[in-house]
Simulated assay, not measured.
Amino acid sequence: MIDLPLSALEVSIVEEGATPADALRNCQSVAGELARLGYHRLWFAEHHHSPAIGAFPPVLLAADTAATTAAIRVGSGGVLAPNHAPLTVAEQFATLAALHPGRVDLGIGRGPGTFHEPTARALRRGAEPATDGDYRADVEAILGFLGEVHFGELPEPWLLASSDAGAELAASLGLPVAFAHHIRPDNTPRALERYRAAFRPSRWSAAPRVLVCVEAVCADTEEQAAALARPMDVIKAGLLGGRSETAFPTPATAAGHEFGERDGAAVAAFVAQQARGTKESIAPQLTRIAEATGADELMLVTPVFDPAARVRSFELIAELRAEAG
């Protein structure tokens, strides 16, 4: 059984045949259901110029969810520091935390949030991609400005990481780390080992804290889970193969997709490190990931086509947590 806190990452899928406005409404409805199901946190990802994911600012989605729910923590997973002025990030999240004390997280990440180079340059106002030094300076500036604003209770900062470098930066700054196992699972064990070994206590965290984000698809049958996960497998095959994003396919479209030998092997290797299946079969998979990583908390990302199916997946996994007491 799952005895760790469970949280969720929302990526605001724009389904084939739908509009970004539809994705936004789906995001709102799923958020309400996650709050009802007792999930600990709900974070929103930052993406831009994607045919599959809505370009909705995490701070706005977090604000809407905080205003329409009572207890679930809300935040960014993450706000991408190179795209924003550090003072603006600090002011936005400090304001949100003052309006909703004890409920706001500021997850900070590095990537541009897009594969579209003109969009990436526009976000950076024409500047080149951030270096390691630029990124560290941005994160330090955000934390510094958080310490200077006086709006009330501050948000809880987290650093998103998918590599050794990100984990080591979190450790050196004394931040809790949210590791993107759903993006680079091969990096997870070594990066978290380095994080724990190098951690320096800070005002933000007295000891290492690890949240691990896992791609999880749960359904009432194994066949349903496989069918629900297949559209994301199609997207994932393209990303793993270095190709640009496509629209998020329907289950029917995805069912007719034929994977080449290389794509099929890459997707299978990735899936083997995530979690999917029925409630009974997914429990040991999530337990294995939690034990292997020493996670203090699991965050689930469930990129499936139908929001009702997405909620059902979260519901089934929440039942595992409830059964564990």
Rank of each mutant, 00 (worst) to 15 (best):
F305A: 15
P20F: 11
R124G: 03
S281D: 11
L123P: 03
E280W: 10
M232L: 13
P231L: 10
R125Q: 13
R288I: 07
F56T: 04
K279E: 15
V234G: 01
S50K: 02
R184A: 15
G54R: 02
G113A: 03
I53K: 12
F56E: 00
I317C: 10
G75P: 11
L96H: 02
S163D: 05
T287R: 14
T119V: 12
E323Q: 15
A98E: 04
L240D: 02
G38E: 09
E33N: 10
A71N: 12
V59L: 11
G325A: 15
G147N: 05
I2M: 13
A8F: 14
T95P: 00
L9V: 14
P155F: 00
E153K: 03
A252Y: 06
A225G: 10
A268S: 13
R103I: 03
C27W: 08
E193G: 08
S172N: 06
E261V: 14
G152D: 01
S313H: 07
H257V: 10
D105V: 01
E33M: 12
A165P: 01
V217E: 04
A269E: 15
L9Q: 02
Y135M: 12
S281E: 11
E291R: 15
Y39T: 04
I13G: 00
A167L: 04
A272M: 09
A216W: 03
